Amino acid sequence: MHRARAPFALPATLVAALLAVSGCSGGGENAARTPSPTPSGLVHYTPATGSAAPAASPPPTAPKECVQTAGMSVEQLTDYLKQLRSTSGNYQSKGLTLDSSGLNFTPEDIKRPCEAVTVKLAHYWVDLKKTHEANVVSGARYEYSYALIGAASHPAGPQDGRVPDTAPPGSSACRGTISVAYLGEDIPLRSLPYDLKLVDGTAPVPVTVVGDGVLSAIYVSPPHPDSC
Rank of each mutant, 00 (worst) to 15 (best):
M1A: 13
A6K: 13
L10T: 04
L14R: 12
A17C: 04
A20P: 01
C24H: 14
C24N: 15
N30I: 10
R33A: 11
P37H: 12
P39C: 07
S40M: 11
G41S: 00
L42V: 13
V43T: 13
A48F: 09
A62Y: 05
P63N: 02
T69D: 05
A70H: 07
S73A: 00
D79M: 07
D79Q: 12
G89K: 04
Q92I: 09
S100F: 08
S101N: 11
F105H: 02
F105Q: 03
D109Q: 12
I110W: 09
I110N: 14
R112Y: 02
P113F: 06
H123S: 07
Y124N: 00
D127G: 07
K129L: 11
K129F: 07
A134I: 01
S138T: 15
R141Q: 14
Y142D: 06
A147Q: 13
P155L: 02
P158H: 02
R162Y: 13
C174V: 01
R175I: 14
Y182K: 04
E185V: 10
D186G: 13
I187S: 04
P188A: 06
R190L: 09
S191P: 05
L192R: 01
K197Q: 14
V199G: 09
D200Y: 10
P204L: 04
V210G: 08
G213E: 06
L215Y: 08
S216R: 05
S216P: 05
S216Y: 03
P222G: 04
D226Y: 11
D226L: 14
S227G: 09
